[in-house]
C-alpha cells in the first residue's frame, strides 16, 4: 500500500491554494520544515510568516490578518496549538469568529520517539468545546488535501489535526470530502466502527477480521468531529447492535465521547471506545506505541465482539 504523511499533503495543498489565491497567508512558529509550510514559504515568502517560537503571538497575528480579509493558516505541533495558545484561540479566533485555520501536525502518539511531551492526545477535546470552532481529522493524504482546499473557503475558525509519520493512502483521487458528513466505507448490520485519522485504516482492517468471524461491521470515516454527522449516527443506531469508536486521542473529549453523546441521547445502545485510556504516551516507535496503547485493529475487533457476542 502506498504511504504518505498527511503533513506532506498539507504542504502540497497550501502551495496549490497559494498559486490560485493571493489572499492565502501561512504562519508557523519555527516549524516550517516539520509542518511542511516551508513549501509555501519557498514560493510565496511575502505571505509566509515564521513568527519564531511564539505560539500565542502567532495565533493573535493570524486573527489580525484574518480581520483584514486574509485566509490564514497557522501551523505548529498539536501539543503547541492548541496546547500552548488555548486562550488566544478561544478569544481572538473562536469568540471573534475569525477566518483562521489552525492546522497542527504531529498529533497523537505516532509522533513516537520524542515522547509524551510531544504527543498531543487532548487537542481534539480542547478544540471541540469551543463555540464556532470546527474540528477535522483527515484519514489520509488524499483526504487531507481535499480538506485543506475545502475549508479555505468555508469562513470561520477550523482546527485540523494531522500526523507526523507516513500512513497508508486509503482513498483514491475521486474521494470527496464534505464537511460534517461521515463517509460509510463498509456496510454491515452487526456493529458500526466510527473512526478518524490513522484509525480509519485500522477500522477497515478490523472489519475484514470480523467478517472472517461472521460479524458484519459498518465502517465510517468520521473525519469531521465537529459538526458531527448526527443523522448518520442515528440512522446506523437503528440498524446495528452497538458502536465502536477509534481515535488516536484520549477516550475523554474526543470522537468517542462525541459519538457516545449522540447515541445516549437518542438510542440506547452500547458505545465502546478505543483510544488513549487517560494516560500519557512515551518514547518508542510509532508502531510499538500503537500496539502498547491498544490503538490496533485487534483491539477494535475485541470491542466489537464484546457488543455482538
Amino acid at each position: 500500500m502506498v504511504e504518505m504523511a498527511t503533513r506532506d499533503a498539507y504542504g502540497k495543498a497550501l502551495v496549490e491554494l497559494g498559486e490560485r489565491d493571493k489572499n492565502i497567508c501561512v504562519l508557523t512558529a519555527d516549524l516550517a520544515e516539520s509542518t511542511r509550510t516551508a513549501k509555501f514559504e519557498a514560493k510565496f515568502p511575502e505571505r509566509h510568516f515564521d513568527i519564531g517560537i511564539e505560539e500565542a503571538n502567532m495565533i493573535g497575528i493570524a486573527a489580525g490578518l484574518a480581520s483584514c480579509g486574509k485566509i490564514t493558516f497557522a501551523s505548529t505541533f498539536a501539543v503547541f496549538a492548541p496546547g500552548r495558545c488555548y486562550d488566544q484561540i478561544r478569544i481572538a479566533v473562536a469568540y471573534s469568529n475569525k477566518d483562521v485555520k489552525i492546522v497542527s501536525t504531529h498529533g497523537g502518539i505516532t509522533v513516537g520517539e520524542d515522547g509524551a511531551s510531544h504527543q498531543a492526545c487532548e487537542d481534539i477535546a480542547l478544540m471541540r468545546v469551543l463555540p464556532n470552532m470546527r474540528v477535522v481529522v483527515p484519514a489520509d493524504a488524499i483526504e487531507t488535501e481535499k480538506v485543506i482546499k475545502e475549508i479555505a473557503y468555508i469562513p470561520g475558525p477550523f482546527y485540523v489535526r494531522l500526523g507526523r509519520p507516513r500512513v497508508p493512502v486509503i482513498f483514491s483521487e475521486t474521494y470527496d470530502f464534505e464537511l460534517g458528513k461521515g463517509k460509510v466505507l463498509r456496510k454491515g448490520k452487526d456493529v458500526a466502527i466510527i473512526a478518524c485519522g490513522i484509525m480509519v485504516s485500522k477500522a477497515i482492517e478490523a472489519s475484514d477480521i470480523l467478517h472472517k468471524r461472521g460479524v458484519e461491521a459498518t465502517v465510517v470515516n468520521m473525519s469531521t468531529i465537529k459538526p458531527l454527522d448526527v443523522n448518520l449516527l442515528n440512522d446506523l443506531g437503528g440498524v446495528v447492535k452497538g458502536f465502536v469508536t477509534a481515535e488516536e486521542h484520549s477516550i475523554y473529549g474526543g470522537l468517542g465521547e462525541a459519538v457516545a453523546g449522540v447515541i445516549s441521547e437518542n438510542i440506547c445502545k452500547p458505545v465502546k471506545r478505543v483510544g488513549m485510556m487517560d494516560v500519557f504516551g512515551e518514547s518508542g516507535t510509532a508502531q510499538e506505541l500503537l500496539i502498547k496503547y491498544g490503538l490496533t485493529a485487534d483491539n477494535i475487533v475485541k470491542k466489537a465482539l464484546e457488543i455482538v457476542v
Binding site: C25, F49, A56, N57, M58, I59, G60, I61, A62, A63, G64, L65, A66, S67, C68, G69, K70, T72, Q88, A92
Partner: peptide, 9 residues
C-alpha cells in the same frame, strides 16, 4: 499580536 497581524496585512 492582533494589531501586528493587521499591520502585516
Amino acid at each position: 499580536s492582533v494589531a501586528i497581524g493587521i499591520a502585516l496585512a
